[in-house]
Design a protein around this nucleic acid. Structure first.
Lengths: 197, 197, 197, 197
DNA sequence: TATGAATGAGTTTTCATTCAT
DNA sequence: TATGAATGAAAACTCATTCAT
């Protein structure tokens, strides 16, 4: 029961911190949104800042890419079509974790606790990508030196897109319209990648 | 004399807004940093928000790329070496205007007045870059269709670097160490560009 | 317990608003007088203005003439002696509600929420008076056309007295001296009324 | 020239104090309305309160009934028609001096300097009225004891009307509509006076 | 003389946090 | 355990008043 209460608070906080920022979100608002009293929040978290860190940590950890679901969609034959699949999966991943993503991006300056870069460039995502590229190298589809270069490029485009969509454009849901727009962009980007091969 | 005082206030505000954000900076802090009373601030700017907008506008306008100083450094022969010059000039430009740049990047979510993207991708910088590429096209050094693709790529890398350096890493001065690190990165990026040619 | 605290605040506010006016009374003063912190006031009332309206409403409603206590003092035989009784009751009523009365009178200009005239001319008081006069008409003691004329005259004198006593003379308690002075005045005024009969 | 400047200030202050009250009117507003700097106000008047008193005194003194203009309109034959003339003159007088009148009425509570009653009941107006009634007594038109009773009654009605019109109804100009409404009221009031004769 | 510039002392209001129950 | 009640500290903002020029 208590667990559930703590969850309620953390969820409400996540959403509000994501939409309004830390200082713009009052504990009163969080309490109301979580359907508890302010006092309850402070019994569970020493300070508002504590709650913040807790939320970051919890949802940061939770954000976990399900590799298998991607793996079995890959051909390991055609780099281009595989990258399309990977890229879309990544976008979906970011937007499935939209709130934590946005907090990391937009509050990075004020809170040194956030090592946004690492999170955003998502070591795991990069790792996954590089894993795939290595496999492709083994299979003789790309040269070794291209592994890092391709992953750099792909992550760069991804991160930039996500940052701008979530902060400047305040997009919270990745609908069909946005997806097709991104697909178009990547059509051209993949042309560039083809050149590298 | 008055001008100077207003300048003091605006400068102090710029710095503090850049380092701490809008809501994390109190008018008291600004007053102390500018060596004036809070009342003086409010005589000159109706509200704190007014001061903010004013600072953005003033330093936004002030940020102006001096084209000539770059132009005469360009060979218009070797794309790679020219791009190196341009890219470094751009970095320097962003860091000469570090505070306004960071404000635009980090406060974009909360203030719709900020069209951070446009500013950051600096229409003028992009224009300059495209101008150069067009010239190179005329001189037969690159194909027409590459103009936009190259400029997109260059700006993407630039913006991402600047965003991460100024917000996540809180770098305020572009020292030799960072420059050489960036140069290294670009070494590889330019290889990629070469492939496109 | 909470009720009591709110009461404290409202009472302190009533007194201070009555003596000094709205703008001349700071929330700090009210808090001090009510023995609470300013924050408590603002938890209970969204704004200072809200507190003001609340006080007006609460004490305005509370001000309620107890008819019975007057009725059984009336002879319904002698108009003059009955009017003396009524008039004194009215004065007492106004001074029992001295603070709300004074607020209504003196702040009417600035706050359109206050329909001071209606309050001051106390529909209920006038109603009561007219009720009595109608009864006297039925009993054949006065003509019908005199009902409204007498009530007008009596209310006019009353309102003027109360307004001047409470605002210009700042009287807060209706002591014997004032009462006897008013009685004297009414001696003459009743002579006038006798002429009308 | 300076005289003119002081006049400007006093006039602006009179108007604003009348419409908004003392505390609701800032020296900045007065300065702007008077087309001078705030500093100029404080060179001429030690404090804002000084300015207030000065304005009251100046315009209080200035408010002066022109007896002659009324006198030659009186018949000294018919009390009723003469009173109509006098009463209308009085109303006009109050509204010609609307601002000072309203200040006296509405700020009386807060400023003990204002002896609003004396002003409002305008010793001179009452004097004039009593002077007229004495003359009528000499001419055998009314009994001596009625002099004071009639003047009391007339002044009571007048003062009440003016107070309500200027404060509750915020009337500033005595137009035909209001005048005819007042005339109607006095039609009935004069009936009452007739009874006294 | 007249004023632009500057401010100290205050105002209303917010909010994270504590505490008694 | 959960919370309603209470608040200290600070925030943005106002304004009468002073002072150098």
């Amino acid at each position: 029961m208590r667990r559930s209460l703590q969850d309620q608070i953390e969820e409400a906080a996540l959403l509000l911190f994501s939409r309004q920022g830390f200082n713009e979100t009052s504990t009163f608002e969080i309490a109301k949104a979580a359907n508890v009293s302010e006092a309850t929040i402070f019994r569970m978290f020493k300070t508002k800042h504590d709650l913040y860190i807790n939320v970051l940590d919890k949802y940061g950890r939770k954000a976990d890419l399900s590799y298998n679901s991607i793996f079995h969609k890959l051909s390991f034959e055609n780099l281009e079509s595989d990258l399309k699949v990977i890229v879309e999966s990544f976008y979906r991943f970011y937007f499935d974790n939209i709130h934590i993503t946005r907090i990391y991006i937009s509050n990075a300056i004020q809170f040194s606790e956030i090592k946004g870069f690492n999170y955003l460039s998502f070591p795991q995502l990069r790792e996954f990508l590089e894993g795939y590229l290595k496999e492709m190298n083994i299979r003789g589809k790309i040269s070794e030196e291209l592994i890092i270069r391709v992953s750099d490029l792909v992550m760069s485009f991804m991160v930039k897109d996500v940052a701008f969509l979530t902060t400047f454009s305040k997009v919270e849901v990745l609908d069909e319209k946005i997806l097709s727009h991104l697909e178009e962009k990547w059509q051209k980007r993949l042309l560039l990648l083809n050149l590298m091969l």
